[in-house]
Design a protein around this nucleic acid. Structure first.
Length: 575
RNA sequence: GGUCCUGUGGUGCAGUUUGGAGUGCACGCCGGCCUGUCAAGCCGGAGGUCGCGGGUUCAAAUCCCGUCAGGACCGCCA
């Protein structure tokens, strides 16, 4: 399958069984070892690996030159095998080397041994991608999307493409605007996601839709966020939450199997509330313990002012009682930086005695409550945050990650579903509830009665898929009934006119017979990064942007000429 | 918009704390030697705006201010 008109084999596939075969391989010169004018070794590299070629004489080709090598596969002489190489049992003998293209010395070594400056890697990305690590990452990514498509199709889903040139839908993420040449002054936007399009496809009777979809958001970049990213976008009709979660679980399990050759273990399930209580976050990393302990009741009557708050939460840092004052002060500063009023620490000594700046304010009951409640052992450090419930949990959840989280590449893959998110996430400056997901998210049926009276207590039929502390994606059952949608818009303070102006085409479509439906989207960049053991999604994207949104290779973004701007109905900006 | 880290031949680093000659290490590159290496080895050589600008000082890679680039994070990401 890999033979072409120019080659018979790829470099990395040659094995002992090929001994005696005359072959032709093509690739780049990885290294050259010359032993005078009578013997030289040239390592040829292509995407499949590396093979050693033996040349009886000197070699014209230099590092990264592109060559075509004809020779005979033979077993290496006894004692010269290289167990480090997949092809290390054999070599190509009696080689003739044809130079297909000369090359300048590469700007950095084309191997995985040193990590070069990322700006330089991106500028010469076409060289960077020759490295085994990048080759492996991009091929892993391809296996993941292949497996996802296969799993979707087998489950009866239909892949449908949706427009990249979409219509502005204010609110949500900042959108990239595309000026219209035929309608000067008007704009398309690039979709933040195909959310509305896929709901329209449900009204259209597609029943089970999926798409490997590019999404674009003009928001600041991060290790796990690029302007453009790829989602496995899914939507299903006549389903419950469990149906969507089952379909998505099957996909990610199949993709994990295809990518790394092993099935993940049980996919855990916990409610948003449980996740916050136990891990202080809605995207828990289940690879390690250090769960939060609620000391609110135990310390309700404490004299210590610093611990008087609606909620008192704690974590135990095993064996950390020896931390010096500098490290402890840094932890306190970190907690304050995360929004906590403060952070209390207790070193657990022999016999359970607590050493802390707060010791003198604590009676024996309180001391016993902290020791018993947390189960801390001598030598451990207990960290306590007293604040509003959510803030106390979130601050300790972050400290838990700071102090206990293993590297991305370590440990098992622990998927979990987080369900029953609140429908609203606090209130804005005007006291209006802010939707936690999007405004088409169906409220939990048990909470519908209190939508008007206690909106912040309403749970939604929204759910996230989390893998080792990374949010892989989210989804929900959508509102398909006009009366419920009206009530949610009312709660959000969106008038009928505003709703019509923003989403009129969707609401209009719903009047023509909308099936109950729900869906999900998996962030493929993050998923692949986790499977590849990479901390950064740029490592699994061929041509990513820098943190400031530039491309060092092409120089984008660049100014457009004045004439081009005017043709688009735009005026050159003042700089 | 903000906080923090980094910037030294092509690459990776040390040197910056405590100012004293562009000093050092490894790789790469160029030339020579070398018939079993595989990160080959040995000998020789070239290669520098210490990111950029300003300031302090007799003297700045080193101290101060500003700025640019890359990165991590906060805000932001319905």
């Amino acid at each position: 399958m890999t033979a072409t008109g120019m080659r018979t084999h790829t470099c990395g596939e040659l094995r002992a069984a090929d001994a005696g075969t005359e072959v032709v391989v093509c690739g780049w010169v990885a290294r050259r070892r010359e032993h005078g004018e009578h013997l030289a070794f040239v390592d040829i590299r292509d995407y499949s690996g590396l093979v050693q070629c033996v040349v009886d004489g000197s070699v014209e080709a230099r590092t990264e030159w592109v060559v075509r090598v004809a020779g005979t596969v033979r077993m290496r002489p006894a004692g010269t095998e290289n167990p480090e190489l997949a092809t290390g049992q054999v070599e190509l003998a009696d080689c003739t080397v044809e130079v297909l293209a000369r090359a300048e010395p590469p700007p950095f070594p084309v191997d995985d041994r040193t990590e070069s400056d990322e700006a330089v890697r991106l500028r010469y990305r076409y060289v960077d991608i020759r490295r085994p690590r990048m080759q492996a990452n991009l091929r892993l990514r391809a296996r993941v999307t292949d497996a996802m498509r296969l799993s979707m199709v087998r489950q009866g889903f239909c892949e449908v493409e949706t427009p990249l040139l979409w219509t502005p839908t204010p609110e949500g993420a900042r959108e990239f605007a595309v000026p219209s040449r035929l309608h000067p002054g008007d704009f398309y936007v690039l979709p933040q996601s195909p959310q509305i399009a896929k709901q329209l496809l449900m009204v259209a009777g597609i029943d089970r839709y999926f798409q490997v979809a590019r999404c674009l958001r003009d928001e600041d970049l991060r290790a796990d966020r690029q302007f453009e990213f790829t989602q496995l976008d899914v939507e299903m009709s006549f389903v419950t939450q469990a149906d969507v979660q089952d379909a998505v679980t099957a996909v990610v399990v199949a993709a994990t199997q295809a990518a790394v050759g092993e099935e993940p273990g049980e996919v855990a399930r916990l409610t948003w509330r449980e996740s916050m209580e136990r891990f202080g976050t809605d995207k828990p990393d289940l690879r390690f313990g250090m769960e939060l302990v609620d000391l609110s009741a135990a310390l309700a009557g404490t004299e210590a002012r610093a611990l008087q708050a609606p909620s008192v939460q704690a974590i135990v840092v095993a064996g950390a009682a020896g931390l010096g004052r500098g490290r402890l002060d840094a932890l306190v500063e970190r907690a304050k930086g995360l929004g906590a009023a403060g952070l209390a620490w207790f070193k657990v000594g022999e016999g359970g005695a607590l050493d802390s700046p707060l010791s003198k304010f604590l009676d024996d009951d309180a001391t016993a409550a902290i020791a018993a409640g947390t189960g801390a052992a001598p030598g451990d450090l207990v960290l306590v945050v007293a604040d509003e419930w959510r803030r106390a949990c979130e601050v300790l959840g972050q400290l838990r990650l700071d102090l206990g989280r293993p590297p991305v590449s370590e440990g098992p893959r622990r998927f979990c579903w987080v369900t029953d998110f609140p429908l609203f996430e606090g209130v804005d400056e005007e006291g209006r509830p802010v939707p936690a997901h999007h405004p088409f998210t169906m409220p939990h049926p048990d909470d519908l009665d209190v939508l008007e009276r206690h909106p912040l207590a309403v749970r939604s039929q929204a759910y996230d898929l989390v893998l080792n502390g990374w949010e892989l994606g989210s989804g929900s059952i959508r509102i398909h009934r006009e009366d419920i949608q009206r009530r949610v818009f009312d709660a959000l303070g969106v008038s009928a006119e505003q709703a019509e102006a923003r989403f009129g085409f969707l609401l209009g479509a719903f009047r023509y017979g909308a099936p109950p439906h729900g869906g999900f989207a998996v962030g493929i960049d993050r998923f692949v990064a986790l499977l590849a053991g990479e901390e950064n999604i740029r490592e699994v994207i061929a041509f990513p942007k820098t943190q400031s949104g530039t491309d060092p290779m092409t120089g984008a973004p660049k100014p457009l000429g004045e004439a081009e701007l005017r043709a688009l109905g735009l005026r050159p900006p003042r700089r």
